[in-house]
C-alpha cells in the first residue's frame, strides 16, 4: 500500500548536530540548545526574525522543516504539502515555563508570548505561516515514535488525493533533551516510503 511513494528528503537534529539527507551540516560541542539552534539557523541561511520569538519546540520543528522545505517550496505557486507531526512531551517544556510565571502571587506576570506556545500544534502553524501552507495539518502525542502510524497516515492522505506531499515529523523537546526527525514524502525519490525505512532513518 505504501510502495508508490518515497521519502525524498529527511533531516535530523539531535545532540548538537544537524543532518540533512544523512550528511552532517553542522556539529557543535558543549553548547546548549538555544545557542546550537541559532547557529543552525545561520548555517542553512535562514533570515526570519520571528524565529527568535519561538519557543524551543517550535524552533526545533521549524528548523527541521526549513532545512527540507527551503529547496522544495515555490512561493509563487500553491504548495500542496500536508503536515503530520508528533511527539511525546507535547508542549510540556513551555508549559512548565508558563506555570512558573503564574505560580508566585507576589511576582505575577504571566506572559502572553509564552502562553501561545503552550500548545504543541503551534510549531506546525509556524511552519505553515513561513511557507504559506494552507493544507491539512495534525499533531499527535504518542508514548514513542510510531513509524507504522506515521506511514499509514501519510499514505492515506496521499492515496485519497488530499495532498501531493506530506511533511512528517517527530519533534521532541523537554528540558534540553531533544530530537527532531523530519521527512518529506512524495512520488519522486529513492527511498521507499515504508515503515521499515522510516524506522531505520529515525534510528540512524
Amino acid at each position: 500500500m505504501t510502495t508508490n511513494y518515497h521519502i525524498s528528503s529527511y533531516c535530523k537534529i539531535e545532540n548538537n548536530t544537524l543532518q540533512l539527507n544523512g550528511a552532517t551540516v553542522l556539529e557543535m560541542n558543549d553548547v546548549l540548545f538555544p545557542e546550537f539552534i541559532k547557529n543552525a539557523s545561520k548555517t542553512i541561511g535562514l533570515e526570519y526574525p520571528k524565529f527568535f520569538k519561538m519557543d524551543n519546540l517550535s524552533k526545533l520543528a521549524f528548523l527541521g522543516a526549513e532545512a527540507i522545505l527551503k529547496d522544495n517550496i515555490d512561493l509563487e505557486n500553491e504548495n500542496d504539502i500536508a503536515l503530520v507531526f508528533a511527539n511525546k512531551s507535547s508542549s510540556l517544556d513551555t508549559d512548565v515555563k508558563y506555570q512558573d510565571s503564574i505560580s508566585d502571587s507576589e511576582n505575577y506576570f504571566p506572559s502572553p508570548a509564552v502562553f501561545v506556545y503552550t500548545l504543541p500544534n503551534i510549531c506546525v502553524g509556524e511552519i505553515s505561516i513561513k511557507h504559506q501552507l494552507k493544507t491539512e495539518n495534525a499533531f499527535f502525542v504518542f508514548d514513542d515514535f510510531k513509524p507504522d502510524f506515521m506511514s499509514n497516515y501519510a499514505s492515506y492522505l496521499l492515496e485519497s488525493g488530499k495532498t501531493q506531499k506530506v511533511l512528517c515529523g517527530w519533534v521532541e523537546y523537554y528540558k534540553n533533551e531533544y530530537k527532531a526527525f523530519v521527512y518529506l514524502v512524495e512520488k519522486s525519490g529513492t527511498i521507499a516510503h515504508d515503515k521499515q525505512n522510516i524506522q531505520t532513518l529515525y534510528n540512524q
Binding site: 503551534i122 502553524g125 509556524e126 505561516i129 501552507l133 494552507k134 493544507t135
Partner: peptide, 19 residues
Amino acid sequence: FGNANDAFHQTASSENGDG
C-alpha cells in the same frame, strides 16, 4: 470534513478567514 491551515498567525485568524 475538511482541515486547512490559516497560515497567518500563531493565535489570530486571517482577515478574510482563508483557513
